[in-house]
Design a protein around this nucleic acid. Structure first.
Lengths: 355, 355
DNA sequence: ATGAAAGCGCTAACAC
DNA sequence: GTGTTAGCGCTTTCAT
């Protein structure tokens, strides 16, 4: 396919007038081996001139290492609408590259058929695995973890019997949801609706629902199932769900949306109905996507840090692979409530700072 | 690292009572080789029972193939704010998986140091390369293409002397920008502003600027450089740019935004100024991101098809690798103008259909 | 129809 | 210090 003849370590050795061993020793800077400075130079020069790049397959065949990290994204279809994943990807890629790893992206559609990433592991394509949005009923992952394969979860999910073997980055979704809901309660709201994701979806979104209910309960507000609606991650689903909520009176006076995209859709529905935000209905979102400050009105929301989560996941994983397990098995990032105007706590003024 | 002993083709052969050759023959379904049905069965069973997965490194070492596609994203920081890339990723991943390829994601920060993906190629980590957002001054890629390495560009960029060697998916940005601008002109606007990206950025955005200018010129409207502002891909930059535009009178009566995210930011600035959309200022975007129908008001915009572009890129690339070059070297996707309400052509009514 | 043997490009234990 | 040699696990002629 390529016109150029392949450059192997043999060619380099020839040109430098040494053996392939020496080439390997020099290029890999093997510690504890002293090579004459002049030889060293010659090898480096030869490699440079020939544009030598070691064959990854050969190297990994003998070393057992691939210098590649697997990143599994189940529910890949969310890539289309969710703003969390790309930012995570960015952070993950950043650190991976810094540490000399490639990223193999595995987008999984159907997680119930979980052979997808197992093949990566068994086929020795990757040195470690970061998993996003895994399903509760995924059976392959626990086995992998139990066997000691380096795995980092993004977003934690409790696994009976495996708690002390799991490495994870996460945010405390329950606490954040409580904070968001309590904020609305403190503003005087009692009819607070919630739009979340289909029940069988992420564990993370169940957290938000749980936090929402706990906050209501703590405030002595009775929980009305009719005020909880299910959508997916899209603005369209938020729009639909909000329309349903607005179909019967009394309206809720506040909404805690499962994410910012849903919030955007819901806000469109509210505007359409001729109601004002936050005067008629206050809105709080979740994610703090980059466009949140520019919504109408600017969205009050919970800030999670996808970029940071990506960075940390890559750091933990590379550490794990290289035998430096992170100090803490579970890193829980803060998820502060960013108060803008959609909740009614602030009056209209300059756009709040972005991120 | 893994507790389990590695399963090699040897183990399978042992268990099935055949040689490794036979195992390879059976598992790879090598054409032109007849193997007794019973032997075949035994091998398959043994492999199944042992959970055998061929070692990728070994296989690629001997075959020279990796079954891996490289996807290079330069300007990786755009992952954070741009909605185009994740959708593209989704489409690309979808088709890649279908065709039996893995995806190696290479996020490049600094494209002027373009060793990044060259290592992938020379190190034989990938069978082909898809490149998004490459820079005009990238010097490695032409060399790769010239050598016959399978490369597909996402978004075309003219390369003198290489036109007949390039494979690309693209949309006609100039035509789309003309359509968008002309639409505004037809609505009676003559003071039409444009917010685009920094000049040294993508070729694609230069297209939009060019189309904008051509449309103005064709309508006999003088081009005023003061009405063109530069931002990056973010809503924040759109907000800032619009504020600048609103700083001096007369205001533009219409805006053609370089992308939807910028449009969102600009719309926030317009609202903040107490002006109405579209009555005071009409807005047209570019991209048709999934949330466009839910903006306030719903955004008139140009629909490009990132998912489709991703699919096609993966199709072209796998075809190229397997010796089935696509019929057309350059596939140019339509980019229709989706008219919603922000341009003022439609009056307020139900939210337009999503995508 | 099946098996023996060579070799892909590299690293690392062992000689010299 | 540097070269020789033996694999890593697989595919693939070439014999049988």
């Amino acid at each position: 396919m390529t016109g150029k003849p392949r450059v192997t370590s043999y060619q380099v050795a020839q040109r430098a007038g040494v053996s392939r061993t020496t080439v390997s020793l020099v290029l890999n800077e093997v510690p504890g081996v002293n090579i004459r400075e002049e030889t060293r130079r010659r090898v480096l020069r030869a490699a440079e001139e020939l544009g030598y790049v070691p064959n990854a397959a050969a190297r990994s065949l003998v070393s057992g290492q691939t210098r590649t990290l697997g990143l599994v994204i189940s529910h890949a279809e969310h890539l289309q609408v969710d703003a969390f994943i790309p930012q995570l990807l960015y952070g993950f890629g950043l650190v991976s590259r810094q540490r000399g790893y490639r990223v193999l992206l595995e987008t999984v559609e159907d997680v119930t058929k979980p052979d997808a990433y197992t093949e990566l592991v068994r086929g020795n394509r990757i040195d470690g695995l970061a998993v996003l949005n895994f399903r509760c009923d995924d059976s392959q992952l626990p086995e992998l973890i139990r066997r000691g394969f380096p795995v980092v979860l993004i977003g934690f999910h409790p696994w009976p019997g495996l708690e002390d073997k799991i490495f994870a980055v996460e945010t405390d979704g329950v606490a954040a949801a409580i904070r968001a809901t309590r904020h609305l309660i403190a503003l005087g709201h009692r009819r607070i609706a919630h739009i979340t994701f289909s029940p069988e979806n992420y564990y993370a979104t169940q957290d938000r629902l749980r936090g929402y209910r706990q906050a209501l309960q703590a405030a002595g507000i009775e929980w009305d199932p009719a005020w909880v609606r299910y959508g997916n991650f899209s603005a369209a689903s938020g729009y639909q769900a909000m329309r349903q909520l607005l179909r019967r009176k009394p309206y809720p006076t506040a909404l805690f949306a499962g994410n910012d995209t849903i919030a955007l859709g819901a806000m469109a529905a509210i505007h359409r109905k001729g109601l004002r935000i936050p005067e008629d209905i206050a809105v709080v979102g979740y994610d703090d996507i980059p466009t949140a400050p520019y919504m109408v009105p600017p969205l009050t929301t919970v800030r999670i840090s996808p970029l940071e989560q990506g960075r940390i996941a890559a750091e933990m994983l590379s550490g794990l692979i290289e035998g430096n397990p992170p100090q803490h098995r579970r890193i829980c990032l803060p998820a502060p409530l960013i108060v803008r105007e959609s909740c009614g706590a602030k009056r209209q003024r300059a756009v709040s700072a972005g991120r």
